[in-house]
């Protein structure tokens, strides 16, 4: 069972439908107990970083997420979900994240249109495994759908699986052990997105 965490930030149905189409069992959860019971977690999210963290705090989900991830439970962060994995965000202030990954969340400069909205190319990190694992079957020609104004600046570049480029090179997908993150929306990225969700599903079930 892949559990999608509902903390009031965003469109959970699309993620759930996409996973169901691929044949994975899913449920939408929002309690500590359910997080403990699940085989794998998905942290979706759209909206503001601070609101999202506040929601996770008020639902008392921060520690359960951290503890489960520490014990090795796989987790996939999508869009804002990926950003929440990092230590600090500078979105309208300075906010602490879940610190599952080292690095910061910063805004695109105004030399490009913000939000970064649309289909952009995925650029595999030279050390990324394109044969198996989360990025299996992905190539330089593939596009994914992004909608975001902020991006991650990871401390460790080898934790980046796929890059993308929008005035600056930024991580499109990251992985550190059981922690996976996608800045784009795989559930909205047509066949490429379905491939990536399938990779995640197969890794964790």
């Amino acid at each position: 069972m892949i559990s999608i965490i509902d903390y009031g930030a965003g469109n959970l149905k699309s993620v759930q439908h996409a996973l169901s189409t691929l044949g994975f069992k899913t449920e939408i959860i929002s309690s500590k107990e359910k997080i403990n019971e699940s085989d794998a977690l998905i942290l979706p999210g759209v909206g503001a970083f601070q609101d999202a963290m506040d929601q996770l705090v008020s639902l008392d989900l921060v520690d359960p997420i951290r503890e489960n991830v520490k014990k090795g439970k796989p987790i996939l962060g999508i869009c804002l979900g990926l950003q929440l994995f990092f230590e600090t965000s500078y979105e309208n202030g300075k906010w602490a994240g879940l610190s599952l990954l080292e690095g910061e969340i910063v805004r695109f400069q105004d030399d490009v249109k913000v939000p970064h909205m649309g289909w952009n190319t995925l650029i595999p990190n030279p050390n990324a495994n394109l044969e198996k694992g989360i990025s299996a079957g992905i190539s330089e020609k593939d596009y994914a759908y992004f909608v975001h104004s902020y991006y991650a600046e990871p401390k460790k570049q080898d934790e980046v699986v796929l890059w993308s480029d929008y005035g600056v090179r930024f991580p499109a997908a990251v992985q550190k052990g059981n922690v996976y993150g996608m800045q784009f929306h795989p559930e909205k990225s047509s066949e490429v997105g379905m491939k990536l969700l399938k990779n995640f599903g197969e890794l964790v079930t």
Binding site: N11, K13, S14, H17, A18, T21, Y145, V147, H185, E187, K188, S189, S190, G193, M194
Partner: peptide, 8 residues
């Protein structure tokens, strides 16, 4: 549409 189509 949201269920069956995987583009925005």
């Amino acid at each position: 549409t949201a269920e069956q189509v995987h583009i925005p």
